[in-house]
Design a protein around this nucleic acid. Structure first.
Length: 256
DNA sequence: GTTGAGCGTT
């Protein structure tokens, strides 16, 4: 009863999906279930969460068994203050498959029931068309960037210009066009290899090169080896222990 | 610990 979304999509054949927006980030499906269930029969309540943090996105989907009940819930719960925040209840315009739906109900239910007709849509290509458009607007999952943007806009413009290099979450979103590849993307993006060439690794450490002003050490593999090994084995070889280093590998001001 | 336009999962 309290486990929603754990078993995946139950049955959306004759269910009306309601989109609940403006909900708090701590509101759970269990909290919305009794609230929406009071106005009708709720067959399923799902709240999209972030794969990385697992935190709620701030909106939920409530599925009703009947449209009349859903409509009533929208009229009653829409604008209702939940958890100290006014929530917005409206019929979902898009289905779980990014397909357009009417009145929260999918215009065309599962076609598998109809027969072997695998073709669910004669134009799957169009689906991606408008789908991409929606994704673009959805890029602002974390509106934090926007918040900072506006915040700096009215305070300090110089800082804003300086931050021009600041990487925006949109660049990778648009590039991948996916929302689940963040895990891999982030794991690899963390590596500064993007701007650093493989050969550079031999003489990396821009700060290490300049300090070498001693002509005595010009070329002594032996001396260099001993020096690297003897003195500070843990301090030396930053690549060997990235953990010891700073979390931000991009500290080369020269590159910027 | 924070945030705030929007459309979804085994």
């Amino acid at each position: 009863m309290s486990h929603f979304g754990r078993s995946g999509p139950p049955d959306i054949r004759d269910t009306y999906s309601l989109l609940v927006l403006n909900i708090t980030f701590r509101t759970t499906a269990d909290d919305l279930f009794p609230l929406f269930d009071k106005y009708g029969k709720v067959v399923d309540v799902f709240i999209p969460r972030d794969r990385r943090t697992g935190d709620s996105r701030g909106f939920a989907f409530v599925r009703y068994k009947y449209a009349d009940e859903a409509q009533k819930a929208v009229d009653k719960l829409d604008g209702r203050v939940v958890d100290g925040r006014e929530i917005t209840v409206q019929f979902a315009k898009y289905g779980p498959d990014a397909e357009r739906i009417h009145k929260g109900r999918i215009e065309e239910p599962v076609e598998r029931l109809k027969g072997r007709s695998r073709s669910r849509s004669p134009r799957p290509r169009h689906r991606d068309d408008y789908r991409d458009k929606d994704y673009r607007r959805r890029n602002r999952s974390r509106s934090r960037d926007r918040s900072d943007h506006e915040r700096h806009r009215g305070r300090d413009r110089d800082h804003y210009r300086s931050r021009s290099r600041s990487r925006s979450p949109d660049y990778r979103k648009e590039r991948r066009r996916g929302r689940y590849d963040d895990d891999d993307d982030k794991g690899r993006s963390r590596s500064p290899n993007r701007s650093i060439s493989p050969p550079a690794r031999g003489s990396i450490s821009p700060r290490r090169s300049p300090p070498r002003k001693t002509p005595s050490r010009s070329r002594s593999p032996v001396a260099r080896d001993e020096k690297d090994r003897s003195p500070t084995p843990k301090s030396v070889s930053p690549r060997g222990r990235p953990n010891s280093q700073s979390p931000s590998p991009q500290r080369s001001d020269a590159d910027e």
